[in-house]
């Protein structure tokens, strides 16, 4: 399976082009890093690939077809701040099971305690919440995962823990991963291939 961004261009309102004529291809099971300084459009590219944003130019193609408009999106995105990515008025169990019902194996691997399921998000720390967000995104229908600074806010141990599980599950379910990050060491450690988004030249 192939996730492809063809000739992608994007800008906010009438502002300068954040992305222009950008091509990207990711295969199943492949781990691709996107690097670059702040404001180079790496987050935007991730959002476009996951269907959160429509490109103004070009298109995103998954397996020879555009991203599905309805139903479960096979390209899932995990954000940087887990506190914002969960509904503060839901118990953690509901959040976890929103997309699919992760089995105990996944929960255990991620170190999610059964007792946490009954808690409110504001009673857990960022590291614990992010484990839920990762479990939530790794559904059986997920084919690609965009990790947008997924572990930037976490300590090194939790970061390593989460990534080891993600890599494991990705291998098992043949998921392709796009790692958006500015941390050089992390990208070097994880990725098969790195795309450097140097500032866009506008003709």
């Amino acid at each position: 399976m192939l996730l492809k961004g063809e000739n992608i261009g994007f800008r906010y309102g009438k502002g300068p082009w954040v992305l222009k004529e950008r091509d990207i291809t990711v295969e199943s099971g492949e781990i691709v890093g996107i690097m670059g300084p702040s404001g180079c459009g790496k987050t935007t590219l991730g959002r476009i690939l996951a269907g959160y944003e429509k490109p103004h130019e070009g298109r995103v193609i998954l397996n020879e077809a555009p991203l599905p408009k309805k139903g479960y999106n096979p390209v899932q995105l995990v954000f940087q701040h887990p506190e914002k990515a969960v509904n503060g008025r839901w118990h953690m169990k509901d959040t976890l099971n929103e997309g699919w019902e992760p089995n105990d194996e996944v929960l255990e691997a991620l170190g999610i305690e059964k007792a946490w399921l009954k808690r409110w998000p504001n009673e857990l720390s960022g590291g614990e919440l992010q484990r839920f967000c990762v479990a939530r995104a790794l559904g059986l229908q997920t084919r690609f995962l965009v990790a947008d600074e997924m572990t930037t806010m976490l300590d090194a141990i939790t970061q390593a823990q989460i990534w080891h599980v993600v890599l494991d599950v990705a291998k098992k379910q043949d998921i392709g991963i796009i790692v958006v990050s500015h941390e050089k060491h992390l990208i070097n450690r994880l990725c098969d291939r790195v795309i450097d988004l140097s500032p866009v030249k506008v003709s």
């Binding site: 090194a156 141990i157 390593a160 823990q161 060491h185 450690r189």
Partner: peptide, 23 residues
């Protein structure tokens, strides 16, 4: 363990999680 878990070092996690204040 924290030092060893850095991506530029061993990237090795340790099992478990930081205990919650309630436990």
């Amino acid at each position: 363990a924290l030092w060893g878990a850095l991506p530029q070092n061993d990237f090795m996690p340790i099992a478990g999680f930081q205990p919650l204040p309630s436990a």
